[in-house]
Amino acid sequence: MRIPILRLGDILLTSIQSDITDEQALILQADILKQLDQTQAVGVVLDISALDVVDSYMARILTETARMARLMGGEVVIAGMSPLVAVTLTEMGRELVDVLTALNLELGVEKLRERLASLAGESGEDVADGSR
């Protein structure tokens, strides 16, 4: 089963609702990048609150998805990691490197909007600098 990706204005929302296989995770990654490309959305909030196992492979896919989206000019926020998953990943010596995270979906949307606003501000300054 494919995980649906919803569009809300200029951002995408997606939620992993149950334990998924490695293959489903890779399909979701590809779908997110495709949707970013096709919809001109500027960011994605990925809700993982229902995931009760995030092992090194899944952590790697999440990190890479965020990195790939950033290369395309988009942003990914991982929202809702359960406390037990956070404890386990840390004990394993794994983390999500250089990935925006939020406590829940709502705060994830907020963080994504803040991040996008600050990026827009930075590029505005660049333009101003260049015009001097």
Partner: peptide, 8 residues
């Protein structure tokens, strides 16, 4: 916590 550790 142990359930999650073992499953992982």
């Amino acid at each position: 916590a142990d359930q999650t550790r073992l499953a992982t």
